[in-house]
Simulated scan of single mutants.
Amino acid sequence: MLPDQYCQHKAAGSGSSFYGSFRFLPPVRRKAITALYAFCREVDDIVDDRSLDTESARRKLAGWRREIADMYAGHPDHLITQALMPHLQAFSIEESQLGAIVDGMEMDLDRKRYASFGELEKYCWHVAGVVGILAAKIFGVTQADTLEYAEKLGLAFQLTNIIRDVGEDIGMGRIYLPQDELERFGVTEDDLFKRRYTGAFRKLMQFQAARAQGLYEEAFSLLPEADREAQKPGVMMATIYRELLGEIERCDFPVLTERVSLTKSRKLWLAWKTWLNG
């Protein structure tokens, strides 16, 4: 299998809302973002692999750090880094930024609780904010504010994921909802692990959703007019993710026991509509 084919297979197989947005890009940018996304999926899959113990997962992440270094030295070994290397200079993809993503994945091995939103925000920066910045570079950036927009949008995406995946994360012993906010709303860890859907839980999730919605609005307010056309793929992703968040809200946050999703046709329709209308 060729490097680009491997990345395409990895990205398409994830079922993510993001991959559909890539189809609207010119070929070179599409190959670059697909390789970046495949890299993110590959390292994320390591920490989510229940067949690996913590130390085995840590060794695999260390191997990816070496692979990143080898790629920047000009001799990548993995198909993903072979696909990504031709785009490093063209899109200003920095070694430290890819390393920061791996650092974020490793945080999932080291901690399963976050005392406050401030702590959670640092984690989100590693696993989503940096990714947003790199994606924006690939889409096309002429204004510095566009990178700030992309970072904020990445945070909004990650908070949407956290809301959607509460039950799934509990199954892995992880609670990303800030501990001080659980306490403020009167929700205990026992409530979460026993999947108790209470009025307190509903109010907690309404608070989380309102924060995410506010971040989408804040991100869009930062996007300069000069880069709006180039950043359409990111806006398409945001349209799909906001629709997902809205669907979770309309369903009254059943996230303890089910994973709310949008159909493929609905996501494609939202992406196409956004591409046409901006």
Rank of each mutant, 00 (worst) to 15 (best):
K137D: 08
G104R: 07
E183M: 03
R202T: 14
R174A: 02
E217H: 05
R164G: 00
Q143R: 11
E249W: 04
E189G: 11
P3Q: 04
G129V: 00
S96A: 09
A62N: 11
S21F: 15
G246H: 13
C124F: 01
V141K: 12
S265W: 05
A90Y: 00
Y176F: 12
L244T: 10
V187C: 06
M85D: 11
E247N: 10
A115E: 13
Y176Q: 02
I133E: 15
Y176A: 04
D103C: 09
E67W: 03
G173H: 04
A11T: 08
L109F: 02
L245I: 08
R59K: 14
V28W: 05
E67L: 06
M205W: 10
T188C: 09
A12L: 14
D165Y: 05
F139E: 03
Y123D: 07
T274H: 00
A238R: 02
T54C: 08
M105L: 04
D48I: 14
V141E: 03
V187A: 09
I138M: 01
A209Y: 00
Q8L: 03
H78L: 03
I248M: 02
R259Q: 11
R211M: 13
K112M: 07
D49E: 13
S265I: 12
W269P: 02
E106F: 01
G167N: 12
L88R: 03
